[in-house]
């Protein structure tokens, strides 16, 4: 495995056991996150993108949710933390080990910062608490200084006053900045951003995206950026994974994915949205049908019932593998199964 790998997920399955049946929210997801890189995960509601993120930090509520299979390997590596590889999937979700990782090595930014800050404590106290918890040899007043410094870094004006503000006193954009400040307070190596700009206005969204890109350069951390917005993903990601109903259907570098989308779902998504900087179409080219009920997923390829290239007898009989079609391009579709063989031959030879 390449030495710049930070996080490696292998065949992750997170299922929810509900009264209505089993929801396979994440059903065999594998990917790698490299140091300093941004992996974008895109998909519609119910595709499992958020559950994947929550699984990494073991935040999936259990019951009903359970990681039933797979490894989540965190490469601690050369940074001197000693123990090298940790499989987060094996940790006790309430144990000390995962708590030491949360907020320190991996931290998370949520869609709605109001719900992730406790309403009863000032922003500063919550950041200070996180610093004191994860950084040894820092006393209270130093932590406060660090908190103010962090708030200043995320572009919050009058940081020395805002540090004593309560979450509800800030606007949505400022709250999201504060949330980022808290997430970055212990210089994590991986930041998971779960739809961090979805609740924000476009102009504020632009500010936050700019801020996150700048901070990533500054801190050199890796980012998993989860969103449903193709425009946002095009802007922030180095590599993109497209998810549909618990599985990755296509994964490629960002330029490759947008220039040469191969999975019919990815093509459909890109075609269906209105593009502001292209000539206006009389009608949008919508994907047919709706995302199936999680209890009622079609047999074979999960996208088969909406797919314009549906091949009867093939697509509804088996789930295609996520196979390489190029050096950094993988697609889960029978349309490319010949290509897969060619690539393996080349690799063998």
């Amino acid at each position: 495995m390449a030495s710049d790998t930070l996080l490696e997920i292998k065949d992750l399955m997170t299922h929810f056991h509900l009264q209505e049946g089993i929801v396979r929210a994440v059903d065999g997801v594998s990917f790698e996150v490299r140091r300093g890189q941004t992996l974008g995960i895109i998909g519609e509601s119910g595709c499992g993108k958020s559950v994947t993120a929550h699984s990494i930090l073991r935040l999936v509520p259990s019951p009903p949710g359970n990681i039933v299979n797979g490894e989540i390997l965190l490469h601690r590596g050369e940074n001197g933390n000693g123990d090298g590889l940790v499989d987060l999937a094996q940790l006790d979700p309430r144990g000390a080990d995962i708590r030491a990782i949360r907020g320190a090595e991996i931290s998370m930014v949520f869609q709605e910062p109001m719900t992730s800050f406790g309403p009863m404590h000032t922003i500063g106290n919550q950041i200070i608490e996180s610093i004191l918890l994860h950084q040894e040899g820092v006393d209270g007043s130093e932590a406060r200084e660090l908190a103010i410094e962090n708030l200043r870094r995320v572009g919050i004006p009058r940081a020395e006053q805002i540090v004593d503000a309560y979450p509800h006193q800030l606007s949505g954009g400022m709250r999201q900045r504060a949330m980022i400040a808290m997430a970055l307070s212990c210089s994590p190596r991986l930041l998971i951003a779960d739809e961090p700009t979805t609740a924000l206005d476009v102009t504020i969204q632009a500010q936050i995206l700019e801020l996150m890109t700048a901070l990533q350069d500054e801190y050199g951390m890796a980012v998993i950026f989860i969103t449903h917005n193709l425009g946002v993903i095009a802007e922030v990601a180095d590599e993109v994974a497209v998810m549909y109903l618990g599985r990755i259907v296509e994964q490629a570098g960002v330029n490759e994915l947008f220039d040469n989308p191969q999975h019919p779902y990815t093509q459909g998504l890109l075609n269906s949205i209105p593009h502001i900087d292209e000539a206006k179409l009389a009608r949008l080219r919508a994907i047919e049908g709706v995302v199936p009920d999680p209890y009622d997923i079609p047999s074979g390829c999960a996208f088969s019932d909406r797919c314009p290239s549906f091949m009867p007898g093939k697509c509804d009989s088996a789930m295609p593998d996520l196979a390489a079609t190029g050096p950094e391009h993988r697609v889960r579709c029978f349309l490319y199964s010949e290509a897969e063989e060619i690539v393996t031959e080349v690799a063998d030879g």
């Binding site: 476009v202 969204q205 632009a206 193709l230 425009g231 095009a234 330029n255 947008f258 593009h275 502001i276």
Partner: peptide, 8 residues
């Protein structure tokens, strides 16, 4: 500010 679905 509109994010463009175009990495280029």
């Amino acid at each position: 500010a509109v994010p463009r679905p175009n990495p280029h």
